[in-house]
Computed example of a mutant assay.
Amino acid sequence: MQTKHSASPLRIGTRGSALALAQAHETRDRLMRAHGLAEDAFEIVVIKTSGDRIQDRPLSEVGGKGLFTKEIEAAMLEGGIDIAVHSSKDMPTVLPEGLDLVAFLPREDVRDAFISHKAARLQDLPHGAVVGSSSLRRQAMIKRLRPDIDVVMYRGNVQTRLQKLADGVVDATLLAHAGLKRLGLGEVVTSVIGTDEFLPAVGQGAICIEARVDDARTRDLLAAIHHAETETCLVAERAFLRVLDGSCRTPIGGLARLVEGELRFAGLILTPDGRTQHETTRVGAPADAEAIGRDAGAELKRRGGPGFFSG
């Protein structure tokens, strides 16, 4: 396939963590196979983000999800990179003008993984155990299931969190199963938590690729690796989150699946202490994904009422 990238490499922007790099390499490798291109047709450009630099505070206190994307998006708008590879769950629901999510890779396992040297499951941890998590969703769900457990803020990349666990800083942690599998670390998982027990974050397990709206050639290149089913599910989930104004400050779970030609959606909001929750489900046509997500979000926003997340 002859593209502008035949002469100059397609520049792939990414964060520098091992997981982010694994996702960028997966994207590159899929493009190489799809178009018969050599590795030198691509350049992986590592960009340090605010979210990577700030390790001592919860993201909810310093700006939320955009901290993992804004520097990368700025580089794309300035022409420094051609595409950006992200974890979908890190993406704000509103993107900068001129940028769009133009491709999704086939989704990995959406579930959360429980990792501990002290117990086989979260339910089996001893009374007063300490669990580390940086996710408000996971924190609230842990407290809902085990209000006696002490949940502490736990920042850092996957390797850092696993090392803290090995050092005994915490008794257990929860991480996305998809990320561990992409890193070849599946063997560290003690048990995998079903989605009926822990509804995942919106976009969990899905890699998305962002590009400039006006870059038709790059969009055409990406079309060959785009997974339409993942996009349909993410359209519903992101519409749900957008209605709730979801950010790192709100414990929200949302999951859409395509089952026998139907879109099945489940959504959940919780108070940070896990004591109060509202859930909803929807079944509809895949073509109505955005409306389904919006409708579910509106229902939970109404049921939660004003000030729900500050409780």
Rank of each mutant, 00 (worst) to 15 (best):
S134G: 05
V152N: 08
K164W: 07
D148I: 00
R107L: 03
L162A: 11
H127F: 12
D150F: 11
I115C: 09
L174I: 14
L165Y: 04
D150Y: 07
D171G: 12
G98D: 12
T160C: 12
A113T: 11
F104M: 15
V131P: 05
I115D: 10
G98R: 07
R107Y: 00
Q123A: 08
A166L: 09
P126C: 11
V131Y: 08
V170P: 02
D167Q: 05
V131K: 00
Q139W: 00
A120Q: 13
A103H: 13
N157A: 14
F104P: 10
E108A: 02
Y154W: 08
L165W: 00
Y154H: 13
N157D: 15
D124F: 01
A113K: 12
L174S: 07
V151E: 01
L105W: 04
S135N: 05
V158Q: 03
R121I: 02
G168K: 02
V169I: 15
G156W: 08
L125N: 00
D167S: 05
L174P: 13
P126F: 11
V102D: 12
A120E: 13
A113R: 10
D124S: 01
R121Q: 08
L165M: 07
R138D: 02
S134M: 14
G132M: 05
P106W: 02
S116N: 07
V131C: 00
L99K: 05
R144N: 12
P147Y: 00
K164Y: 08
V169L: 09
A172W: 02
V170G: 01
T160D: 13
R161P: 08
L174F: 11
R121N: 02
L101M: 14
K143F: 07
A166R: 04
N157Y: 09
D109R: 11
R155T: 12
A172C: 10
L105E: 03
V151R: 02
A119V: 02
H117W: 07
I149T: 03
Q163D: 07
D124V: 03
V102E: 14
R161S: 07
R121C: 09
V152W: 10
K143T: 02
R137N: 15
H127L: 11
A119W: 01
F104H: 13
L165E: 06
N157K: 06
